[in-house]
Simulated assay, not measured.
Amino acid sequence: MNRSQRLAKAQEFIWLHARLLERNLFAYLFANGSKEPVLAALHAYQNEDGGFGNALEPDKRCPTSQPQDVEFALHILDAINAMDDHMVTRACDYLATITTPEGGVPFALPSVNAYPHAPWWTVDANPPASLNPTAAIVGLLLKHDIQHPWIEPASAFCWREIEALDSTDFHTLMPAITFLEYASERERAEHKLQRIATRLAQPGVIELDPHAQGYVQKPLDWAPNPRCFCRHLFTDDIIKRHLAALAKRQCDDGGWPIAWDPISSTVESEWRGRVTIEALRTLDAYESVSSH
């Protein structure tokens, strides 16, 4: 299947099943759409406190603001090159209000417990700060040279946590890598990135079987585009095989499946809209490199 056929199938899925936000994002990324409808749709998820909630991250259905939803919003703004939008400053103001004494923000806030949510979202009454999502949020802000008083203490928290980090967990390391890719202290950051790369290169840490089932992270999860840090961890042949497998995972309805159990059919559709767009972006990013 060529790119135009793949996109045509995906577009039908997006129009039939995805949220307005992802429909507008698809139009911007793949159909010459404007970024204004994306911004308008995203704005609906921002609460009066400046944070994002309302199930922007679909696995938890709480309307109140959550740190992960801020990260989700920033990834969308990054994708449409709109990190200069006023929503970003308001989100940083919100993050300052939920920052723990350690200097970062928690994985989730206890308000998530009062609403339907996937089991991994249940949190204690006083959750500590976490690299996930603090490091990813700081990294995205640094990438776009955003200025805000929250960033400096949050960066200090990230450095302290990364110094002690020995994890191979995807959801811990990817935020850390995002932070290190854009941190201003380049020599220090490169040293930490190489430590992480050494850990990831150990046999069995990354799932290399392109057809492995279940909730596993494969090379294209670590390296969703050829310019990111983790790309150098994999040979061209490994990337080629995983790109072929990713293309073949497009379902008959035009969308890509999710690799975990959703808590409702609505949640599944919302997530599939997101992962379909990300699959298309990854395939396009690597194909554009190979065509040059």
Rank of each mutant, 00 (worst) to 15 (best):
258 I>M: 00
128 P>H: 07
8 A>N: 09
270 E>V: 07
278 E>K: 14
10 A>K: 11
100 T>F: 01
51 G>P: 01
188 R>G: 08
207 E>Y: 04
279 A>H: 09
70 V>R: 07
80 I>L: 02
227 R>S: 13
29 L>V: 02
136 A>M: 00
130 S>F: 13
257 P>G: 04
68 Q>P: 08
127 P>Q: 06
189 A>Q: 00
52 F>S: 11
223 A>M: 10
210 P>N: 05
166 D>R: 09
220 L>T: 00
106 P>G: 01
208 L>P: 05
252 D>V: 13
146 I>H: 10
107 F>Y: 15
17 H>V: 12
186 R>Y: 08
163 E>W: 01
29 L>W: 09
22 E>C: 04
11 Q>D: 15
148 H>L: 08
273 G>R: 07
184 S>V: 12
251 C>K: 13
29 L>E: 07
81 N>K: 14
226 P>R: 11
183 A>T: 08
42 L>T: 04
127 P>E: 10
30 F>S: 05
81 N>P: 01
5 Q>N: 12
163 E>T: 03
255 G>M: 08
170 F>A: 08
64 T>F: 15
104 G>H: 10
254 G>H: 13
178 T>P: 06
42 L>R: 03
10 A>D: 09
152 E>V: 09
176 A>I: 05
61 R>H: 14
20 L>V: 14
159 W>V: 03
57 E>S: 10
111 S>T: 13
263 I>Y: 03
131 L>H: 03
280 L>P: 05
202 Q>L: 10
131 L>G: 02
